Simulated assay, not measured.
Amino acid sequence: MKKAAEYAFIKTIPILLGYLFLGVAFGLLLQKSGLGALWAFLISSLVYAGSMQFALVGILTGGLSFVTTGVMTLFINSRHAFYGLTFIRRFKEMKLFYPYMVASLTDETFSLLCSMAKPKEFSEKEWKLTTFFVAFFDQCYWVIGSVLGALIGQLIPFSAEGIDFAMTALFIVICTDQWKASKTHIPAVIGFVCAIVFLALIRSSGFILPALAATTAVLLFLRSPIEAYMEES
């Protein structure tokens, strides 16, 4: 367990830096809306949904209906259904950890797990523990950052303007690492083209779900030739 935890911590250091800063921004926003550190802890522990948490601040203070809240949550976090398809078999093999792994699969955790390769000296049990610790540490970073932000907001005035770019920068770094490590860039190019097409058609953040659906459909259709190309190369 110690070996798996140490490896997972090293791998999640970039996410630690990003989640602490963005978590602080969320905590500050929450505190300025009249909700304190306890709310920050509960939301980041139980909701843990990044952009949805920022939207939740307005929902809690604006008194929106349950139906509106449910629809907003579906549209904002629907992309995670596609993330989960990648890890269904892997998470099911983790048995007791399976429900938590599903709930904790954020954008950054997904990207990191996709880019990680099992070291030769790791057993299957150690690798499963490493996967769990990656998700668990990431959530801990987010919770700590959120609570710190709420506490800081109570003590000193602080502007969080521009701090949300930390997660954009982190995602770019992880994406670059995956690009370098991948044997083929065909899936990435397909995803990029689909995103550009639907962004041009929809011209709003709502392009993400249809772009992901289109990417999945194209990849399933081209699965055999892509796998054949990878085997040849």
Rank of each mutant, 00 (worst) to 15 (best):
R223H: 09
G18I: 07
F207T: 06
C114G: 13
T168K: 09
M116D: 12
F137N: 09
Y7D: 03
T131H: 06
I208D: 04
G149Y: 04
I144Q: 07
F158C: 10
L29N: 14
A55E: 05
L64S: 14
Q178P: 10
Y100C: 01
G34F: 04
S204L: 00
A49V: 01
R90A: 12
K2P: 04
V189Q: 02
F82A: 08
P225Q: 02
L199A: 08
H80V: 09
I144W: 07
S78K: 00
E232D: 10
W142L: 11
G153K: 02
Y98E: 14
F26I: 09
G36P: 02
I202E: 06
I163Q: 09
G23W: 05
K128E: 07
M52L: 12
F82C: 10
K11N: 11
F54T: 05
W142I: 07
M1N: 12
S224G: 06
L60Y: 00
M94R: 14
P14A: 03
C140Q: 11
L155A: 12
L17F: 11
I174A: 11
E232P: 05
Y83D: 15
K120Q: 04
L113N: 15
L201M: 09
L105R: 15
A135Q: 06
L74M: 13
L222P: 10
Y48T: 00
I156W: 12
K120C: 00
A228C: 05
M94F: 00
I172E: 06
Y98K: 10
L113T: 05
F136P: 07
Q139K: 10
T68K: 03
I172L: 13
T168C: 15
L212V: 02
R223P: 08
F9V: 10
T216P: 02
W142S: 07
L220C: 09
A228E: 11
V143W: 13
I190H: 04
I43T: 10
L170Y: 12
I226M: 08
H185E: 04
S182F: 07
H80D: 02
T131Y: 00
L113P: 15
T86E: 13
V67Y: 01
A217K: 02
A81C: 11
T61N: 07
N77G: 10
A103K: 03
A25V: 07
C194Q: 04
K3T: 02
F132T: 03
A40V: 01
F133Y: 12
G162R: 05
L38V: 15
R90D: 11
S115T: 00
F21S: 13
R223N: 13
R223M: 05
E126T: 01
Q31G: 08
S204C: 02
A166C: 14
F207H: 05
L170P: 10
L42N: 10
M116C: 12
A55F: 13
A166L: 08
I186M: 00
P225N: 02
